Computed example of a mutant assay.
Amino acid sequence: MNSAANPPSSTPETGEHKHVGLDAIAEAAGVSKATASRALRNPDSVSAGSLAKVRRALAILGVDSGTRETPPRQMIALVRPTVAPGNVDPYARLFELLTSKVFAQGIAAVHVEAAVERADALAESLLGPHGSKPHVQGAIVLGGGAAGELAAKLAERDLPQIRVSNARHSDGISRIVLDATDGIATAVQHLVHLGHRRIGLVVLRDSAAAVRIAGFRKSIAQVLHIPATRDQAPVVEAAGGTMAGVAAAEELLGQQCSAVIACAPSLSFGILEAAGRARLDVPRDLSLLTVGDMPDADVIAPPLSQVSYDWEAIAVSALNEVRAMMADPGAEVAIDYSVTPDLVLRASAVPPQRR
């Protein structure tokens, strides 16, 4: 875990950071030592983005405009599940935005990567012993799995929190649901509009898979006016990771799909890999559309069409909701609403070609 405290109100001079090395500041900011040095000595000599990174690094390292540590007035835990090697974090952009917005409001952001085997220890570190005042005053929990396990433990201690995930549960925890079902329906409609009639779906094997599969088959049935059986609406449930996407794509290609909808970034990368192995061109031989956030989707070859969320609006909503809970911890109003993604067209989906 690490925390970000209030940004310094004025630009510190070099001598004010004798207890924090330039190497540490540069590493925390993600900039070079030279850039960090210039930002400290002459803020006007670096870009606004670099200056903001250095100032944030100083706050993370607990340094204010003098030489003393500045304890934050409030702390919010930002929780996300640990991402396995080879997988892509679908909440990376939202996590980054939340960090910036929490920081901008003068609150400390405590970053937590949740793992199931560490849930008890993490809860203890965030809440302290029973009967004591919690170390954090609220939490925003992204995703399910291990993050959901930790959210449940935080809820046992009545910590104000809101979850952002792709599945709805009747656990009493306030949540913003990322409704991929509507996103899948949008993807189906777009691909059918392009002329595709053989569309496959690849989903992660998780708690949201059944709902997504049902939504996909319902959309296929409504748009194509067919029964949408397993043969007519092929679906593959895959484990996380690029190689799982490769195997799923090979299976759907074997079923003569001309277009594939992928419900995770790692699966989309796997589909691109599988197409390359089969010497198929995307999108000429296989159209691909991703449901969910796809990092750098606009610079991948080809630029990937996707059904994505307005992460800026979600970050604002989540932070506003948890701050309202923190201001009135005795209120028993549970927030529960869905966010529907929008279609972003690029170059990975075109009318079907004969192959």
Rank of each mutant, 00 (worst) to 15 (best):
Asn6Asp: 12
Pro8Glu: 13
Thr11Asn: 15
Glu13Asp: 14
Thr14Leu: 15
Glu16Tyr: 00
Gly21His: 10
Ile25Leu: 05
Glu27Thr: 11
Ser32His: 04
Thr35Gly: 05
Thr35Trp: 06
Leu40Ser: 04
Asp44Thr: 14
Gly49Trp: 02
Lys53Gln: 14
Val54Ile: 01
Thr70Met: 13
Pro81Val: 00
Pro85Phe: 12
Asp89Pro: 05
Tyr91Pro: 06
Leu94Arg: 01
Ser100Thr: 12
Ala108Tyr: 00
Arg118Ala: 13
Arg118Gln: 13
Ala123Asp: 09
Leu127Gln: 10
Pro129Arg: 10
His130Asp: 15
Gly138Thr: 00
Val141Phe: 04
Val141Thr: 11
Gly144Ala: 15
Ala167Tyr: 12
Ser170Glu: 14
Gly172Arg: 07
Gly172Pro: 03
Ile173Asp: 04
Ile176Phe: 06
Asp179Lys: 04
Gly183Ile: 03
Ala187Glu: 01
Gln189Cys: 08
Gly195Arg: 12
Val203Gly: 06
Ala214Thr: 01
Lys218Ile: 01
Val223Glu: 13
Pro227Ile: 03
Thr229His: 08
Ala233His: 06
Met243Tyr: 15
Glu251Trp: 03
Glu251His: 14
Gln255Glu: 06
Gln256Arg: 15
Pro265Asn: 15
Ala274Leu: 11
Ala275His: 07
Arg279Phe: 03
Val282Asp: 03
Arg284His: 11
Arg284Gln: 12
Pro295Val: 02
Asp296Trp: 11
Ala301Ile: 04
Ala313Lys: 13
Ala315Cys: 10
Ala318Gln: 08
Gly330Pro: 03
Gly330Leu: 05
Ala334Pro: 08
Leu345Lys: 15
Ser348Trp: 01
Val350Leu: 14
Gln353His: 14
